[in-house]
């Protein structure tokens, strides 16, 4: 086909593009994936029975502050990387702050606990499944973000994949908080973060294969 004909056919039926089409598309993928994850938490894992009283406590909000702030940074970075000329700017570096903050709190917790109790604090009751659960809960959200990216234009595929994986991991972890009764900062810092990094790693590997356009 010659280029003139191509241009004519591309311009034949032009639909207006809404102003925030990119954000809408990402939001849609995120929410669709999030709803699946939420359903999985509700049906497979079960919401923790003491959720209401826990929401009046400190640790529940500490965990949410950690996972949600990471999720916001990663999502902002993912949305910038959805443009061909997009630069992540400082969003990925900003994620160091919640990690450092939680590490400081974990340190304070340990200082307030006799060293004999540290291991129990670190492993909690669910360390064997926590990272795996966070990782699995990230998958529907990751798929949602991949769907969003299909119509967008990432050009740094490995970085975009890793960032989408991290965002999915952090939002998955946020929803996992509805189930997980663990209370120590050291626990969250270790096992939650590991699950999120797993999701980011999978995104890093799959990005160059699945995000091509």
């Amino acid at each position: 086909m010659n280029s003139e004909d191509l241009i004519a056919s591309l311009s034949l039926d032009i639909q207006p593009v809404p102003r925030h089409a990119l954000r809408r598309r990402l939001g849609l993928g995120l929410v669709a994936g999030g709803l699946v994850t939420l359903a999985v938490v509700g049906i497979w894992l079960g919401v923790r029975p003491d959720l209401m009283p826990a929401m009046h406590g400190f640790t529940f909000w500490l965990k949410w502050t950690y996972t949600i702030s990471l999720a916001i940074c990663a999502t902002a970075a993912a949305s910038r990387l959805a443009r061909p000329d997009g630069r992540v700017g400082g969003w990925l570096w900003l994620m160091v702050l919640p990690v450092l903050g939680l590490a400081v709190i974990a340190g304070l917790e340990m200082a307030a606990t006799p060293s004999a109790g540290w291991l129990a604090m670190w492993l909690g009751a669910s360390w064997r499944v926590c990272s795996r659960n966070v990782f699995l809960l990230a998958l529907p959200i990751f798929v949602g973000l991949l769907w969003s990216y299909r119509r967008l234009a990432p050009t740094q595929l490995a970085l975009a994949g890793a960032t989408a994986g991290m965002a999915a991991g952090a939002w998955g972890a946020t929803l996992y908080c509805l189930h997980c009764p663990e209370t120590s900062a050291l626990f969250v810092l270790t096992w939650y973060t590991l699950g999120m990094l797993g999701a980011a790693l999978v995104g890093r590997v799959l990005g160059p294969r699945l995000l091509r356009w």
């Binding site: 591309l10 593009v17 959805a82 356009w213």
Partner: peptide
């Protein structure tokens, strides 16, 4: 490549800021 780029410019125009 010119045509591929034009198609991408068309299909992915929502990503222009």
């Amino acid at each position: 490549l010119v045509q591929e780029t034009l198609i991408a410019v068309h299909q992915r125009r929502a990503t222009y800021d």
